[in-house]
Amino acid sequence: MSLADFLRDVLGLTGTHLGCEEGQCGACTVVSDGATVRACLLLAVQADGMAIETIEGASDSGRLKDLQEAFYARSALQCGFCTSGILLTADAMLRDDRPVDRRAIREGLTGHICRCTGYHAIVDAIAETAEQRATCDG
């Protein structure tokens, strides 16, 4: 059983979506021991002993609040299918010590497929959040 199936079917954590089941679309992205991974490519048994964080945990902790607000304000989500994976990836990018500009954001989103937004609003929301976090940290 894949980690994605285990999270959804056994634990009821349905924010981890299954799209392509080949690791290409990014909808199943979770955080494993601090790094984003594709849950469809990881067997549940392989995750034994790892710290796994889903969109539910990251949202409940409040860590994604600024990103979620920026996505909402910029209409960076429509159907929402890809959003959980993109939010987790964006947060990982923003917590990294490397500078985040629009090009880095686009490169960081490689492997995430959004069929609704065209990515412009998503990049805008992440760039806005990066600026806000830099202002708060500086």
Rank of each mutant, 00 (worst) to 15 (best):
G15N: 00
A92E: 15
G15F: 00
V45Q: 14
I113C: 11
A125P: 09
A73G: 10
Y119W: 08
I52A: 05
L18F: 13
D9I: 00
I55D: 02
R63A: 12
I105M: 10
L88G: 03
V31D: 05
Q132A: 05
L7V: 07
D48P: 09
E56F: 09
L41Q: 06
G62S: 07
A39L: 09
S84T: 15
E22V: 12
I52K: 00
A125S: 03
A58F: 05
A73I: 08
I55V: 10
T129V: 04
S61G: 03
Q24I: 15
D137H: 04
E22H: 14
H112I: 08
L64S: 03
S61N: 04
G26M: 14
L64P: 01
T110R: 13
A76Y: 00
A134W: 06
L67W: 04
V31N: 04
R74P: 01
G23I: 09
G34H: 05
C25F: 09
C28S: 08
I52P: 02
L67G: 06
A121K: 12
A90T: 07
S59F: 07
S59H: 12
G138Q: 01
E69Q: 08
V30E: 03
L42E: 05
Y72E: 13
C79T: 11
I55S: 01
R63F: 06
R106V: 13
G62F: 06
L67A: 06
E69M: 15
R98M: 09
E69S: 14
E22F: 15
L11R: 03
G108L: 01
R63T: 04
S32K: 11
R98F: 13
L88K: 02
A125C: 06
V123S: 12
L3Q: 04
I105S: 00
T110Y: 10
L64T: 10
Q78M: 05
L64M: 00
R115D: 14
E22W: 12
Q24D: 09
D66I: 13
I86L: 11
L41N: 10
T117Y: 07
G26C: 09
G85N: 01
A44S: 11
E22C: 14
V10I: 05
S59Q: 08
M50A: 13
S32A: 15
F71N: 00
V123L: 12
T16F: 01
D48Y: 13
D66A: 13
D91T: 07
I122W: 03
S59L: 13
T14M: 04
V30R: 01
C28E: 06
C136T: 14
D60T: 14
R38N: 15
T110G: 07
L87C: 03
L77Y: 03
E131A: 12
C114F: 02
T14N: 08
I86T: 07
A121P: 06
L18C: 13
Q24Y: 10
C116S: 06
A39K: 01
D124I: 00
L43E: 14
D124L: 01
A73V: 10
T36A: 04
G19C: 05
F71V: 00
C40F: 04
Q78I: 11
T83V: 02
A35F: 05
V123P: 00
D33W: 08
G34N: 12
L87W: 01
A58H: 07
E107D: 13
C114N: 08
G34A: 08
R106N: 11
Q132T: 07
A104V: 02
E21Y: 15
K65S: 12
L11W: 03
F6L: 10
C116Y: 07
G138P: 00
E69K: 15
T135K: 13
H17W: 11
